[in-house]
Nucleic acid binder design. Structure first.
Lengths: 226, 226
DNA sequence: ATTCTCACGATACAGCGTATCGGCCAGACC
DNA sequence: GGTCTGGCCGATACGCTGTATCGTGAGAAT
């Protein structure tokens, strides 16, 4: 709690070049380059050419660092638009794009309450842009869009990683993934699923995200004018 | 990949009482009792009165164990209903309830592709129950509901934990949480947000979940009949 | 000049996932 | 029946993690 208010350590007017910001940005660099598991306090400290324990003058815990990293990315998300639909759509799309820029965020998003200054600024921006929506509806509406986005990007990134893990190209992926499904279907235990997978349309990640988002926005629209 | 097909270890007809099932259920017990961080291979092995390395005869990796735990919970989810709306609603509600029974699932859900037998059986059940929905729509529709549920329960559990962390009762929570918001609002940087929080309706977790779900279902309904 | 203070970094600890390897036991073969 | 052998099991070990503790040394204060 109150994580973002932690002041510079007391009685240290110029704490060397080290600062919360430098720590967070070193951690972001590591995470962007090699994923979340590359972010250890030791590695972050090493990147800053500093002993691991130095960091504890600026952050209380590793979880706090992860919260700060998450909040830092929220600074990149600024919804825009003229009517509520445009605003919510850009909220969703720009959040998704932020996760694509920082895949590790898929592991953290939704996992902790977002109370950092950038998350709140994002909330302020979207709330302000939704001025025409009734006071009682703003929270439910934004929460629903956020919930959808969180789940959608987690699933999307999870699939992306699984695909990459089999070897990088799409053929090998289908060579490993396809046969597994084939064998599962061959048991005859999933006939309806098999039918849908074989006969249904196959959408790419962009289309899937947008269709789901349209569902949410359409549903919101229906309730807004009621 | 192909995690769920791993047979009993070769050339070991009766591997003592140990088995994948026993390992998974010991892990589930630990996780339900003390959370995910209580699930270490050493602790699971200890609960089974076995050396840690014994487990590697049955699982390849800790991540595989987590996948198996997740899939085990999916066995509890069986959507039911007569029309598509009932089916999807019960899919969402019963998934949410499963997460409430196993809070640790909030940390895992959506984080990996769900290809286990129980996840697929859940998929089969919902697909079969959506027989009236067009083949091309089943996947997008189920994906959208799942995405919403994943994000919603993650946020819900995250908030629940934050609340619990401040001390167990609701008063202390508001004593810590309220002032933080107060001070943030006092900066004047979040006027729209402040207005919504102060004047808007405050919904509990159940209501929030259901309203968001209604948005999704309404939106789906609009597209289905089009 | 001397003493005090306190921040810093080295060291340490408990725990983690998992690789390796030595010994032992059961079964096979002579 | 005795010997060999293959393979499983558990002990040990490695490298890594987050973080507590504490001696030291530099800077401030008197």
């Amino acid at each position: 709690m109150l994580v973002w208010e932690r002041p510079e350590p007391p009685n240290r007017p110029v704490p060397g070049p080290l600062s919360r910001e430098r720590i967070v940005s070193a951690a972001l660099e590591l995470a962007d380059a090699d994923g979340l598991e590359a972010v250890s306090l030791r590695k972050v400290a090493a990147a800053l050419e500093v002993g691991p324990m130095r960091l504890y003058g600026y952050i209380a815990t590793k979880d706090e660092l992860l919260d700060l990293m998450t909040d830092a990315v929220y600074a990149e998300i600024r919804p825009a638009g003229d009517d509520w639909r445009e605003v919510l759509r850009s909220l969703a799309e720009s959040t998704r794009q932020a996760v694509h820029r920082h895949e590790w965020l898929a592991d953290l998003i939704g996992g902790r309450p977002q109370l950092g200054p950038n998350a709140m600024a994002r909330g302020e921006a979207v709330t302000a842009a939704l001025g025409n929506v009734g006071v009682d509806m703003v929270m439910p509406v934004v929460s629903a869009v956020d919930a959808y986005v969180i789940g959608a990007v987690r699933r999307e990134i999870a699939e992306l990683r699984a695909e990459r893990a089999t070897g990088l190209d799409k053929e090998q992926w289908q060579a490993a993934y396809g046969p597994y499904l084939e064998r599962s279907f061959a048991t005859g235990r999933f006939p309806a699923l098999e039918h849908v997978v074989r006969e249904g349309a196959h959408l790419d990640a962009d289309e899937t995200f947008r269709i789901g988002l349209d569902f949410v926005l359409d549903g919101i629209g229906a309730r807004l004018q009621a």
